[in-house]
Amino acid sequence: MDEIIFKTILIIIIFIITLLIALYSTWAERKIAAVMQDRRGPNRAGPFGLFQPLADGVKMFMKEEIIPAFSEKALFILGPCIAMITACMTSVIIPWGSELTIGGRIYSLQITDINIGILYIFAMVSIGVYGIMIGGWASNNKYSLLGAVRAASQMISYEIAMGMSIIGLLLMSGSLSLKDIVEQQPGLHWNVFYQPVGFLIFLICVFAETNRSPFDLPECETELIGGYNVEYSSMKLGFYLFAEYINMFISSAVIVTLFFGGYNIPFIHSIGLEQNTVAILQIIFLFAKIFFFIFFFMWVRWTLPRFRYDQLMNLGWKVLVPVAVANIIVCALFTTKF
């Protein structure tokens, strides 16, 4: 099998998995919310309401599409497209497992291992802001404009702390490639034990970057009706919501890859399994960890109240950035000393 064919298949599989996980995250979110609020949640469509996301999807597609007469039409359509495309593009550099051997040839379970690694994800995230900004502006509605402005300023502010929080980790690993970073965490040598402060800052910033509660000010219902997506209907609204869930999935994957050993299973090589079996177990193990973090995102959403806007900015600029700088200095001293 050719390398290109394998990669194409891998891309398609990952794309489908990403969409499926985003679809079922909506179901999981509603179920978890229900459990936390002592309700039953969706339980009509299929067993345990498992077909609910499909019903929701059909509903989204069937609804009448409204483009407001006072909006900038081209930009109005462009907004959700950018949000969705950039969300899907980030999965390219995540290593989903070590290697598969098919017919005597070794295939890496990572679509591409580019030299700049993690920076690519930052770039995609920073382009993703335009989806929200352009959509919010093109709607020509003051609430959506406010939501868009909030989203942009929040994401720019937290990008700085996010970038700084992983510098300590990069000083230790000496590589930007996610594959190298994963390979450096065998057994239980997870980066989270060496970089607890960096991990904490990164986690908080990820919540802000994905616009998840407690930092979901761009879509704050009580103040902005619905935020940047007020004017959107049918599948365009669906794209925005979907992009958020995809971002959540990819962020969980990045957190796991950077700080929780990625696809590594502790002590798997002492059992002496075949390489292919190990690779498949690794994928399952990675996804188990990712699902835990998706659950964590939802857990936080239904536990913590929303921040006020000035509190959000204070936390970002006056707490996270200085702590991240201090973390860099400490890590630099340690890495040169030992």
């Binding site: 030299n115 930052f122 770039a123 920073s126 802001v129 900004m133 404009l145 402005v149 942009a152």
Partner: peptide, 23 residues
Amino acid sequence: FLAIAHIIVYTGAIMVLFLFVIM
């Protein structure tokens, strides 16, 4: 690296601020 720094800094940060001000 230059390409990605260009995207992060110019496209991702400076142009967002431009757009911000104009909006």
